[in-house]
Amino acid sequence: MAETEKTATGAHAGMFFWALIVGASFPVVGLLTEGLPPLLLTALRFTIAALAMVPMVRTAAAWRPGLVALLLYSVMGLCLAGFFGIMFWAAHRVTALSMSALFIFMPLLAYGLGRMLRVEPRAGGLLAILGLGALGALALALAQSGGDLDALQFGWNEVLFFLGVVASALYPVLSKWGLSRGLLSGDAAARTFWSLAAGGVLIAVAGLLMEPVRGMARMSLGDFLLVAYLGVFSSGVTFWLIQRGTGVLTPGAVTAYSYLVPFVSMVVLFVGQPELIGWHWLPGSMAVVASIVLLLRRSNRQARMGAREPA
């Protein structure tokens, strides 16, 4: 196997692991004490994640960014802060089905934004794969809601949530753009640390302005341990995997793995409640799995073609 194919395969494997971590983290979030300030909790989570990256960052070459890189990291942190802030705001204003339906556009948005910034090549095949994955993820969302189409609503609240999805899609695009121009560190850990640090500061500022700080006093030791777990794994490791994948794959291919998240959540649900298994879950599951298999085959084919090209 060519070295380029090994690199692409490793990036895909990392993004598959990303989907497993994110999909399995949703039950953990539900164990937190109700009523805790969500933005301040996220700021704490990002802080823990950034601190967990320090040992890896200190061994990286040129891990301290210049002024231009720091500005770009700040914009990337703003994307993270914007998505998480809007997501928490929309939690009680937008139905779960509407959020899922809007979120499936993220890979397509990443592809479009990547085309605009010229970090994503024109690829009709990738668009078709992303479309198949989007249909599968939507089918899984409908299956989870019991097919209740009345829960699919679109108004100004949904428009604001969609802007958060755009911000999330822009994160890997900006990472790829900064890498392609030599503005960001070539080390995935360094990029992860600085974007998490910037995002954590911005989310903390928003939390201090919008939420009662005294609400954090209700946090128990168990809550802190859960947040620490989410910080290290569901934030630190996952964003490192995104940055690692972005260094090799295009933004559209990286974000395509978000289609696997509802599939993993479905599997976790079935483990705890096997009586919920039904045929209505099958079409979406098959479409999502097929899209990921096609994505892997496409990536490996491109790697083999690139390896055969003369230097």
Rank of each mutant, 00 (worst) to 15 (best):
L32E: 07
F88W: 11
F26H: 05
L174F: 06
A206H: 04
A206E: 00
R45S: 05
A307F: 09
M56D: 10
L179C: 12
A60H: 03
L282Q: 05
L51M: 12
R64K: 13
L97M: 03
L72E: 01
L152H: 02
T255W: 03
L226M: 14
G77H: 00
Y229D: 11
L127F: 13
W194A: 00
L102E: 00
H12M: 14
H280Y: 14
R45D: 01
G82I: 00
N300E: 15
L149S: 13
G186Y: 01
L44A: 12
I21R: 02
L130W: 02
G30N: 13
L117C: 07
L230F: 04
I242A: 12
D187T: 11
A110M: 09
I129G: 02
S175E: 13
L117Y: 07
T238V: 12
W18I: 13
V165H: 04
G178L: 00
A50N: 01
T59E: 15
L67K: 12
A204G: 03
G14T: 10
V288K: 02
G306P: 05
R214C: 14
L149G: 09
A217S: 13
G133F: 03
L221R: 13
L226I: 12
L132Q: 05
Y259P: 01
L36C: 02
V288S: 06
G306S: 15
R191P: 04
M87P: 10
L135K: 07
G66P: 01
L183G: 03
L40R: 06
C79F: 04
A287K: 00
T250L: 06
V213G: 04
V293W: 10
G10N: 09
A137W: 00
R45H: 03
E120F: 05
L276A: 14
G284F: 00
M15S: 04
G164M: 07
L294S: 08
V173A: 09
V261M: 08
A256P: 02
L113W: 05
A143W: 05
A290W: 02
M219G: 07
R214D: 15
F105L: 13
A90I: 03
L138D: 04
T95H: 09
N300M: 15
P107W: 00
Q144E: 13
A137G: 11
T9R: 13
L142R: 01
S285Q: 09
F162A: 05
I104F: 10
P107E: 04
N157S: 13
A253I: 15
M106I: 14
I277F: 12
L108H: 08
V271Q: 11
Y257S: 04
Q243T: 12
G252C: 05
W156M: 15
Y257L: 07
R301N: 12
T47P: 03
H280S: 11
E5Y: 10
G85Y: 00
T238F: 03
N300I: 15
K6F: 15
S74W: 08
M216F: 03
A287G: 03
L202N: 04
R58S: 12
G146S: 07
V268A: 06
R45V: 06
A256W: 01
H92I: 10
P121M: 07
T255H: 06
